[in-house]
Amino acid sequence: MDEVFGCLSRRDLLIASAGTATIPVAGAADDAPPAVGSPPGTMSRLTLEVNGKPQTVDVDNRTTLLDLLREQLKLTGTKKGCDHGQCGACTVLLDGRRINSCLMLAVMAPGAKVTTIEGLGVPGKLHPLQAAFIAKDGYQCGYCTPGQICSAVGMLDELQRGMPSHATADLAAKPLLSADELRERMSGNLCRCGAYSNIAEAITSVAGGAA
């Protein structure tokens, strides 16, 4: 249960104070944003496109793309699991390619096009992979699911472009999505609930439909 502070729950308070960390930018004319309490030069301003929408933000240089998405842009669909690139929960698409958003600095992303789980589809208009994960019950707790889905989108695109994997027998042939290929290509996304068989089924159902 949330702790209660007067009429505000602890959860509301956290959300409210996190909101003040987003520095509203109007005009974005100044290259050196004010950085109260930060050593000089350790903040940066950048513009990037997130889910089709331009965003100009001021960030501490230490901010990862993951923290920018979650803490400043309030796109909390992308999850922080290990924060070390080992679990894949933070997977997003950067210029169409899947990456671990925890291992990229936001300040390295000016001009980038980022797609998160929120940008793939919305209720009533789901991405085929989102619909397939629901139809095939490709999760238990759901924490790894946004990363699994973004990773699967990127993975199917890599397959479409003929990119090989460790499981590809013949480097000269166009790879097809066998069970071995799917498992190898999705190995950067862990599911601690162990919903792998349904995850594989969900991805296969979409890949089969697209072929």
């Binding site: 899947r98 671990n100 990773s151 090989p164 460790h166 999705m186 190995s187 950067g188 996304n189």
Partner: peptide, 10 residues
């Protein structure tokens, strides 16, 4: 292809 994950190799 034997190293890391798809996301990391990208």
């Amino acid at each position: 292809l034997a190293g890391a994950s798809g996301q990391l190799r990208n």
